[in-house]
C-alpha cells in the first residue's frame, strides 16, 4: 500500500505546515488573508491525514463520500446559522 518512507514524509509535511500556521500569524498579514491561509493549511493537513493515515485513498470511494456527507451537514448548519444573523 504505502511505504513507511511515504508515511514519514507526510508526517514531516504536517509538522512543517503546523509551524507555518503560527508563523503566518506572526507575519503581520491582513486578518482575513492570514485567516484564509491558515484555514486552507488546516484543510490540507486534514486531507493528508484522512487520505494516507486513514488510508481513505485506498478504500472504496463510498467511505469518502460518507465522511464528506457528515462534513457537509456540519458546514450547512454552521454557515446557514451564521448567515442568518448577519
Amino acid at each position: 500500500m504505502v511505504s513507511t518512507k511515504l508515511y514519514t514524509a507526510i508526517y514531516v509535511v504536517l509538522f512543517v505546515s503546523a509551524t507555518i500556521q503560527v508563523l503566518v500569524e506572526f507575519a503581520g498579514l491582513a486578518y482575513w488573508t492570514a485567516f484564509a491561509v491558515i484555514i486552507v493549511l488546516s484543510a490540507v493537513k486534514a486531507i493528508l491525514v484522512a487520505a494516507y493515515f486513514q488510508h481513505l485513498r485506498f478504500e472504496p470511494r463510498s467511505l469518502t463520500y460518507l465522511v464528506v456527507t457528515g462534513l457537509l451537514a456540519a458546514l450547512a448548519l454552521t454557515l446557514a446559522a451564521s448567515y442568518s444573523i448577519l
Binding site: 465522511v67 457528515g70 462534513l71 451537514a73 456540519a74 458546514l75 448548519l77 454552521t78 446559522a81 451564521s82
Partner: peptide, 17 residues
C-alpha cells in the same frame, strides 16, 4: 466517525455562531 464529525461540527459551529 461520520456522526462524530457532525457532533464536533455542532460544537465548533456553536463557537463560530
Amino acid at each position: 466517525l461520520a456522526s462524530d464529525v457532525v457532533l464536533f461540527g455542532g460544537v465548533i459551529g456553536a463557537y463560530v455562531f
